[in-house]
Design a protein around this nucleic acid. Sequence first.
DNA 1: GAGTTTGAAACT
DNA 2: CAGTTTCAAACTC
Length: 208
Amino acid sequence: MENLSNQNTILPKGTRVCNCKYSKCLKLYCECFAAGEYCIDCNCNNCCNKPEEEDLRLKKIQTILERDPQAFRPKIPVDPETSKSKAAPHFKGCNCKRTKCVKKYCECYNAGIPCGINCKCSHWYDLLSKNTSDNYSKQPPYIPPLNEYFKFLAEPLIKKKDSEEDIKSDEGSTFSEEIAMKGQECISFEKFEETLYGRLVCLLNNLS
DNA sequence: GAGTTTGAAACT
DNA sequence: CAGTTTCAAACTC
């Protein structure tokens, strides 16, 4: 997977090019600053991420480290032998809401690694995230079953899975059973079945 | 190339 | 610590 422009891929020093306009390249929004490098030949405005501004730069670094001592740690574990991102979980994980972790907005996808235990997209994970290690072997293209899409539509009506235990205990159960189990805590299965989404989900579940 | 969308980072 | 704002990159048209 090509990842030539993200901060987690090990790039030779000076080969990053940022385009920061308002951050003076002194916030983690700036790829160069986040990587602990000076801006060199970047397209940034009012850049303070350069040796001439070292005092200010160090102050900012200190402020950021006070807030989060791990702020400058690479987000993806690096293999010391290859100097490339390892296929290990993102340290913080992503928090994608809309892109199903298959666009470069997703830090995991962008780094070429599957979403993992640290990701907060995990409440969608079993239904929505297509950035799974399993799917790496299936791609391209991964086309979700239509039924999965309606599971997504039904999701707001059903209490979300709260823990890994819930997810484990659901393995092997049918989606109708899942709805029934979770419905006890939120809305009854009968009530859910009455909704438009519910009818569609049940219909499709029977067909698939 | 301009405008929009997205999610991390920063802020309140 | 949850909600909101800012920001730069990714994406679309």
